[in-house]
């Protein structure tokens, strides 16, 4: 079953996936070229596990009852980005139940924020949008919150449009771990949770963020934008116009020096 003595492997949708000790399920899967949908996971960062798009089921069992019926007992559900891979584990990802769950999660994010794609600079390369396309999310389904959120244009080079924030914390992590600046943090909780800037005024312009910082370039959606750089790639030639998000999963494989 295993490729060699040192390589351990598990099964993802019945396909054998090798992994290195310490890798999580999604890390091993992406390295092996198998796509598992995700938003808060990023190849350069330690997995975080908040968006739950990468939820998989582990070790479902099929049993035969006394009257000869075959019954499937669903395995435990877990975020594949934070769950360590284990040898011989059977992981399900591409099942109708999990695809439906992921559609529901995308729809939840779509109604929580104000996602007006036609007027968004990130459209065409937005991970939330790309994922919605890939999952076939045709509508937000739930009633829109239409929450009132601000735009912060106080920084000379970088614009913040909080309407589109999905609270993945990538900017928080990037600023703390890579830039060592702690420009972003989260405040509030539950449905009042929101991104804040590290200044008494609360304004981005009063922080030491630079446009070249990792934090200014990691947002998967259209919150952290570079001024004077909108709509540069024509419609039809943008990232998700040309290839679906699930294309070439190895592009999301973890890079060696993870922070």
């Amino acid at each position: 079953m295993s490729n060699g003595q040192d390589t351990k492997s598990f099964f993802l949708d019945d396909e054998e996936i090798p992994f290195e000790e310490g890798q999580t399920i999604i890390q091993a899967a992406l390295t092996a070229g198998k796509y598992i949908p995700h938003l808060c996971y990023h190849p350069e960062f330690k997995p975080h596990g908040s968006c739950k798009l990468c939820t998989v089921r582990i070790d479902s069992r099929t049993i035969t009852t006394e009257d000869g019926q075959t019954v499937k007992i669903p395995g435990r559900a877990a975020a594949s980005c934070t769950t360590p891979a284990q040898a011989e584990q059977h992981v399900e990802s591409n099942t109708p139940e999990l695809l439906d769950l992921r559609r529901t999660l995308v729809q939840m994010l779509l109604v929580e924020g104000n996602h007006f794609c036609p007027s968004c600079e990130k459209s065409g390369k937005c991970m939330l949008q790309g994922l919605a396309y890939d999952l076939g999310v045709m509508s937000p389904h739930f009633p829109q919150y239409f929450s009132k959120r601000e735009v912060d244009a106080t920084h000379p080079d970088v614009l913040l449009d909080f309407n589109r924030c999905i609270l993945c914390e990538l900017c928080v992590r990037a600023s703390a771990e890579v830039d060592k600046k702690n420009v972003f943090s989260l405040s509030g909780r539950g449905n009042t949770k929101h991104l804040i800037c590290n200044s008494e005024s609360g304004k981005l312009g009063d922080t030491n963020l630079a446009a070249t910082d990792k934090a200014a370039n990691v947002c998967p959606v259209g919150v952290i934008l570079h001024k004077r750089h909108g709509f540069e790639v024509p419609y039809g030639q943008r990232r998700f116009d040309t290839a679906p998000i699930s294309d070439n999963p190895v592009q999301y494989a973890p890079v060696k020096e993870q922070v």
Partner: peptide, 18 residues
């Protein structure tokens, strides 16, 4: 059938909701 962004999440006109 709801066709187009505005019918599906309010679209551009709904940006007045703020």
């Amino acid at each position: 059938i709801a066709i187009g962004a505005c019918s599906i999440n309010g679209g551009l006109p709904a940006q007045r909701n703020s």
